[in-house]
Each structure stands twice: as C-alpha cells, then as structure tokens.
C-alpha cells in the first residue's frame, strides 16, 4: 500500500480534522471528534434538513457536499463502511431545524438498514423524517429491478436539486417529492481501469491486469458487466452512452445535464476527451446540454476510471439545479 497516511485506523478521523480545519466556513463537527459533519451554521431554523452519509473514501461525496444550498449534515463511516445508527441519528439531530429531515443517500444494504433504524429512533423523539434513495447505477440491476440498483454519482444532482428546494422554504413533503423526482431522472454507469486500496485492509479491492478495464464496475469494486482489454476513449464513451440512453431514452428537445466524473486517479484531460464524445452523442439525439459537470465529483480514492451520469431535467429541476449553492468542492 502506497498512501500518505499516519495510521490506517486514524485515516477517517484525521481526514475530517483536516477538512474542518481547511474549510471552517462550511464544515463543523456536530461534537468534538464525532464522525458527524454539519453545516457551519446548522441547524438552520425552519428549513427542512437534508442528511446524507455513507462510507469514507468517496470525497467530495458525501461530506464534501455539506453547505448552503446542498446538505445540512452527514454521517461518515470507515472507508467503504456504513456509518453507525448512532452517528446517523446524531447527524439528523444536529441538522434538524424544526422542519423535519430528509435522508438522502445511496442504495447499499448496510446504509439502508442503519438510516432506517436511525429514522425509527428519531421518530420516538418526534423528529419526522423521510427517505429518498439513489438507485442510478444502470449496470447494477436490470430496469425491471431498478429499486435494487446502487446509488453512485447521481447523488451530486440529488443533493444540489433537493438542497435548492429546501432553501426555498418548502416543507418536508415537497422537498421529498423533488428529491425523488431527481433520483428518478438520473442514470449513471462507470468503468474502472485500476482498483483502490482500503487503508485498513492494506491491499487492493480487486485484481486487474495492466492492459485491462472493467465496464460497469461499482464504486467499491462490485463486479461489472464485462472485463477485457482497454479500449479507446471514444469506444468507452460510446458504450457508456449506449447504456444510459437505452435505459432512459432521450428525444429531440429534451434538456439534460451530464456529469463526466473521475473515480479518483483519472485526470481532467481524459475526462474532457470522453466528454467530447458524450456531448456529440447528446447533440446527435437532439438533447440540449445544461450546466455540464466535468471533474472529480464522486470518487473511490485512487481508483482510475470514469462514470457518466445523465440527469434529465424539466423546468422545475433545471431552475433548482442552477440555484446558488456552495461547498468547498463546488460552487454554483
């Protein structure tokens, strides 16, 4: 393992120490030493709070997106491991401004169980909460089993759009409706070139030959659709666009945002080579691109690879996507 760290067991806590020290205007620990990050000004009285969370190792997901117009709080687990029920409950308590809490996170078994249980605990404290799950990874289950799909980079759009809705002063029911709408409008697919190493495990999450790639792989190394020789950027982009457009067909005049995301090690240069092809393809089908995002938005530490996310917009979603928001990693 070749990583700049002090002690694998302190990886998460020292990362959070640095994050809060660098950006105190955005991030604050809910309690000293807690793996719970809330907005610097949390709780925002009268506003629906949006809480997310999951394992570490995906920055800016999840914690990075805490900020005005985005998330109110986050519970952070060990690398690639769910936060505990107690941490999630603490994040919800600290974020709650009296208008209830939306739990907005990715569909992973452990996270679902822990967020559900935290919600049940908060119910006993009379803090109402709702759930919206991201299930945007088209490679993780067939369309007829959409609810089983994993949540990946679509979360970025969900945070942004639901966060903007909450900023309008909308109530929990309305914020939940919009969050579900954006979750339903997102489709993602990824491809990995190299694995990453979980510090506490000390070895790569999977083995892959130097000249190979895996299409459809999950962000924790979950098996993908195929593994084979590395292909060109255009071939990879074409296949990823095929998968996204097959799952959510677009018609002439449709408006979409597209996120071309690095899984960590893939540099912006390669992302722009991929984006070039993806944008041409969207133009071919007659779709209009709104606010494209190219960069590192949802990662798996040092994994090399890319994911594409298409978020299909209507007037409501587009307006909310463009509303102001800020965190240390992204400003709109």
């Amino acid at each position: 393992m070749k990583k700049l760290l002090n002690d694998p067991a302190k990886f998460v806590d020292e990362m959070l120490d640095g994050l809060c020290a660098a950006h105190p205007e955005f991030y604050r620990r809910a309690a000293p030493g807690a793996r719970v990050i809330v907005r610097a000004d949390a709780p925002v009285a009268g506003k629906v709070a949006i809480v997310s969370g999951g394992g570490s190792g995906h920055l800016p997901i999840f914690t990075g997106y805490v900020g005005p117009g985005l998330l109110d709080g986050c519970a952070i687990g060990e690398v690639f491991s769910s936060p505990s029920v107690e941490q999630i409950a603490d994040a919800m308590r600290a974020a709650n401004g009296g208008a209830g809490v939306l739990r907005l996170y990715g569909n992973y078994g452990g996270d679902c169980m822990n967020f559900d249980m935290a919600g049940e605990m908060l119910e006993m404290e009379d803090i109402p909460s709702t759930t919206v799950l991201l299930t945007d990874d088209v490679a993780s289950a067939k369309p007829e089993e959409r609810q089983k799909r994993r949540g990946v980079a679509g979360m970025v759009y969900a945070y942004k759009i639901a966060g903007a809705k909450a900023d309008t002063g909308a109530d929990l029911t309305e914020v939940t409706r919009v969050a579900q709408k954006v979750a339903d409008a997102c489709r993602s697919v990824g491809a990995a070139l190299t694995p990453c190493t979980v510090p506490l495990a000390g070895k790569p999450t999977f083995q892959i030959a130097d000249d190979e790639m895996e299409m459809g792989m999950g962000i924790h190394g979950e098996p993908g659709v195929w593994r084979g020789k590395l292909r060109t950027a255009d071939q990879v982009a074409a296949e990823m666009m095929d998968k996204l457009l097959a799952d959510q067909p677009l018609a002439r005049g449709d408006r979409v945002s597209i996120l071309v995301n690095s899984l960590g090690a893939t540099p912006p240069e390669e992302l722009y080579i991929l984006y070039r092809h993806a944008a041409a393809r969207l133009k071919d089908v007659g779709a209009e691109i709104v606010m494209p995002l190219v960069g590192r938005y949802a990662t798996s530490m040092e994994m090399a690879g890319v994911s594409f996310t298409i978020c299909k917009l209507d007037g409501e979603l587009e307006g909310l996507l463009k509303a102001p928001a800020a965190c240390a990693f992204w400003r709109v």
């Binding site: 060990e78 029920v85 452990g110 249980m117």
Partner: peptide, 18 residues
Amino acid sequence: AQAFTKTSGSTFGTLIAT
C-alpha cells in the same frame, strides 16, 4: 439497542439492535 449500534455501522449489529 442503542448501545449495541454505537461502536460500528455493521449490518449485523444493526440487525441485533433491531
């Protein structure tokens, strides 16, 4: 139940707490 889930996010721990 609350104490059991305090130390880890493990799904098995959450099941026990449930």
